[in-house]
């Protein structure tokens, strides 16, 4: 019967960074249109495993629940993706939930993705304006150019592209496709372009674009369909040109 239908969810639990991970299984009542977040709310309401053992609610990150804030990335059935748009009816059971592995673990499904924001800072990912005062309109931009920039600027910093990248690991410090894409975005803005050199110098530095080996996993994992490999290639070309010009003129 429909109302008796249940969903099996297995969660990789870890109380803290130093603790040993362990799996717990939960049995959840099925309802129409459920996503992984709805399952996690159910567990919080009744934190009891499928074999009847009392446990604690699962810690996880979530905010907008419509795939625009980037918070709820986790590894679901082996794929790094957003939990809000992971619909239960489209997932094979038992549904396996794990934290992302390329970022420091905080607890359960929560990881610390601060490195992405730090890298954005290091790569100077902003348009340097003179101030917030009324000093007139911005530069004119052709609609075609805006459309390219808009597609790049929809990056939600979820980190899925880093999670699937073979060059992001404990031995390498590649900044990852998301940040390289930001460099492209700001270098294409008319004001941002005036400072392109600074960004290109940073993106040629440690962990820079040279680390990318073109595995192209990033573009497949991106929930926003950002042309990440195109951005990698574009920034690579810009960086090369910048270094040649730098060599010629200095």
């Amino acid at each position: 019967m429909a109302e008796a239908k249940t969903i099996l969810v297995r969660v990789k639990r870890q109380a803290g960074p130093q603790d040993t991970p362990q799996w717990e299984e939960f049995s959840i009542r099925w309802r129409p249109n459920m996503n992984v977040i709805a399952c996690l709310i159910d567990i919080a309401e009744n934190p009891v495993t499928s074999d009847g053992r009392k446990t604690t609610p699962v810690s996880y990150e979530a905010n907008c629940l419509e795939e625009v804030c980037g918070a709820c990335a986790m590894v679901i059935n082996g794929h790094s993706r957003q939990a809000c748009s992971a619909l239960v009816d489209h997932l094979e059971q038992p549904i396996r939930l794990e934290p992302m592995s390329k970022f420091p673990l905080v607890r359960d499904l929560v990881v610390d993705r601060q490195r992405m924001f730090n890298d954005a800072k290091r790569m100077r990912c902003w348009v340097p304006i003179d101030g917030t005062y009324a000093i007139g309109p911005g530069p004119r931009i052709a609609p075609e150019r805006q459309e390219v920039a808009y597609a790049l600027s929809r990056c939600i910093f979820c980190g899925n592209c880093l999670e699937v990248c073979p060059k992001v690991n404990e031995h390498g410090d590649f900044v990852g496709a998301a940040i390289v894409n930001q460099v492209r975005l700001f270098n294409m803005h008319p004001t941002g372009a005036m400072h392109a050199h600074e960004r290109l110098r940073a993106v040629r530095g440690p962990g820079g674009i040279q680390e990318c080996d073109n595995a192209q996993n990033c573009v497949k994992a991106c929930p926003k369909g950002i042309p990440l490999t195109e951005s990698n290639n574009d920034v690579n070309r810009q960086a090369l040109l910048d270094s040649i010009l730098g060599w010629m003129f200095h």
Binding site: I129, G136, P137, I141, P143, Q146, S153
Partner: peptide
């Protein structure tokens, strides 16, 4: 209107007209 100008200068990818406005 001034706030829109500011956002525009900050690089917000506002949709454009054929004239680039």
């Amino acid at each position: 209107p001034g706030i829109i100008d500011l956002l525009d200068r900050m690089g917000v990818t506002f949709n454009r007209t054929p004239e680039g406005l």
